[in-house]
């Protein structure tokens, strides 16, 4: 079910401000890759450019071999790439179920896979099944994040991008969300995870990239990056991993 995502020489920005400079990155089919880096390094910008919310100035993005560079977001999601955006961007006044149904909008109304995916999402986050009729803005932050992930899964993606899913959440909730991500990866979904919590991200991912000033500064297997002096110093608070 997973597909390969390749980003080659991507440049993008807002107006005249260049944010991304020649970014090359790949997520193999069924792999979980994390992109870490400090605030303002361009991580969110990269996800936006891949998902189509921002038009890249140069470079290419291919999904399972199909070029999707510069495509509109409503078409990219039909190519089976879904983004859980920064800040979640839920449809707050709508119910949990309505959010999930809208998540499946890119698929034909009679697609049998939609019902199956709804079941799957509710298995993954049982809370979503219990709170179906609740207005989503009234959910807690963690529940909202689960809904955001569930909504993205309703499009039946082969590649899932997540923008800081742990931000502002309690450790217990973060653990639940990352457990779900592990499950999805083990089912074969390709995942590109942007995180500010480098410890957490490198613990779950297969490989990692470190972004600095809009360019990739380092890359490697997650455990190697965890042990890397530079990474440890800059992003892991300069201490060996003690938290578990």
């Amino acid at each position: 079910m997973g597909a390969e995502l390749r980003i080659d020489g991507l440049c993008a920005g807002y107006g005249r401000v260049d944010v991304l400079r020649d970014v090359t990155l790949r997520v193999d089919a069924g792999e979980m890759v994390t992109l870490i880096g400090s605030n303002g390094a361009g991580k969110s910008t990269l996800l936006k450019a891949v998902a189509g919310l921002l038009r890249p100035a140069a470079g290419t993005v291919t999904l399972g071999g199909v070029p999707i560079t510069g495509m509109a977001p409503e078409r990219i999601v039909r190519q089976r790439l879904a983004l859980v955006p920064e800040g979640r961007m839920l449809f707050g006044p709508l119910t949990v179920d309505e959010n999930l149904l809208i998540g499946a909008h890119s698929r034909p109304a009679r697609d049998a896979g939609v019902a199956a995916d709804l079941e799957r999402v509710r298995m993954l986050f049982p809370m979503l099944a219990e709170r179906g009729a609740q207005i989503s803005a009234t959910l807690s932050g963690g529940e909202q994040q689960m809904l955001a992930v569930g909504r993205a899964l309703m499009s039946g993606p082969e590649v899932l991008l997540l923008d800081e899913p742990s931000l502002g959440l309690a450790p217990r909730v973060i653990a639940a969300i990352f457990e779900a991500l592990d499950t999805l990866r083990s089912e074969g979904l390709s995942i590109l995870l942007v995180e500010q919590d480098a410890h957490l991200a490198l613990r779950h991912a297969d490989r990692g990239y470190v972004m600095r000033n809009g360019a990739i500064a380092l890359e490697g297997p997650a455990d190697k990056l965890r042990d890397d002096e530079q990474v440890r110093h800059a992003y892991l608070g300069g201490r060996p991993e003690t938290r578990e």
Partner: peptide, 13 residues
């Protein structure tokens, strides 16, 4: 509610 979020869901705004 949000054009960007709607487009990410595949809605042709």
């Amino acid at each position: 509610i949000s054009h960007d979020a709607a487009r990410l869901m595949g809605i042709d705004t």
